[in-house]
């Protein structure tokens, strides 16, 4: 038996209609999960739904503009919040990965509660999928990491949650997204706390800018190599800024610069993964471009860990 996306959509639209008598807002990052959840809720609620996207300042290159286009194309009632300063202020001096995730989760809810109040909504639609609550742990299950949309929610939150994708994994969400005609169906996964968990150590605008540029190069080169048939497109591929400085030589001068790790993995559901066997020529191009184009980086390493024992993201 295969996953039946059409039946799933029918059931969930009906369920959302029955659960939400009034208005709802939907937390929408522009990724596959939250966009799919927003479209499902939009089908059920029409203009009683408002999709809210937050520009946290931690997003990838050109992401906010891109998400805005996606939401417009889907015809979902939406609102874009710009809150980069608030996020960087809240994250100042914090380098513990779990603290980062909690701070970001709380901030999201603070903003969503504000928006919900203004819109007159009692429900919050989230694109929570199975790995989010599994890895967030609880009772017997150990917490691997705090997913902001599950374990990062404050205990006194007033909004009632609607999570139509809770029992699905990414491959199943993609099937739903394709059936719904969501254009981001094939987009690679991207964590809710965004680039904050790809800057190991303190999150500052400068360090985020650095990993953003490096990530754009990784995406660019890997997509180009895949489209030329040199390699399959990995499940996920990105850069991580590692808090290690090392020595380099630039134009006969000593430099003491940053290290970027490249991560690319193969997976179906995010619950187990192998590192991608990227051709060395492609890694070479990525390395040369990052060390030439991203100022301050003089070393690039490739992460060859599987999940388990590692996780896909570094934090």
């Amino acid at each position: 038996m295969k996953f039946d996306a059409e039946a799933f959509i029918r059931e969930q639209v009906e369920l959302i209609r029955n659960t939400v008598p009034g208005r709802a807002i939907s937390a929408c990052s522009g990724g596959v999960d939250s966009t799919t959840a927003a479209v499902l809720a939009g089908r059920a609620l029409g203009d009683r739904l408002l999709a809210v996207y937050v520009d946290t300042g931690l997003m990838r290159k050109d992401e906010t503009e891109d998400v805005e286009r996606t939401l417009q194309a889907l015809g979902v009632n939406h609102r874009i919040l710009r809150a980069a300063d608030e996020y960087f202020a809240a994250l100042r001096g914090v380098s513990d990965p779990e603290k980062k995730r909690m701070i970001i989760g709380r901030k999201f809810i603070e903003l969503f509660e504000r928006e919900a109040k203004a819109f007159g909504a009692e429900h919050l639609v989230q694109g929570t999928i199975a790995p989010d609550w599994i890895e967030s742990g609880g009772q017997l299950r150990d917490r691997i990491k705090t997913h902001h949309n599950v374990a990062g929610l404050p205990a006194d939150m007033k909004l009632k949650l609607v999570e139509p994708l809770r029992d699905l994994y990414k491959d199943e969400v993609r099937a739903v997204a394709r059936t719904l005609g969501v254009r981001v169906a094939e987009r690679q996964p991207f964590p809710g706390p965004a680039l904050a968990v790809r800057v190991i150590g303190e999150v500052t605008p400068e360090r985020v800018a650095l990993v953003r540029e490096a990530s754009a190069i990784v995406e660019d080169e890997i997509q180009a190599a895949a489209s030329r048939g040199l390699m399959p497109l990995p499940w996920q591929y990105f850069a991580v800024l590692v808090p290690v400085q090392t020595v380099g030589v630039h134009g006969d001068l000593r430099v003491y610069g940053h290290t970027v790790a490249v991560r690319a993995v193969e997976s179906i559901d995010g619950m187990s993964a192998t590192y991608s066997k990227i051709p060395h020529d492609v890694l070479d191009r990525i390395s040369t471009r990052i060390t030439n184009e991203v100022q301050g980086v003089n070393r690039v390493v490739y992460d060859i860990s599987n999940k388990p024992p590692a996780t896909i993201e570094w934090e």
């Binding site: 599994i134 890895e135 009772q139 299950r141 150990d142 691997i144 029992d167 619950m271």
Partner: peptide
């Protein structure tokens, strides 16, 4: 029993 893969 609290597994990461129980739901799998």
């Amino acid at each position: 029993n609290g597994g990461q893969w129980t739901h799998r």
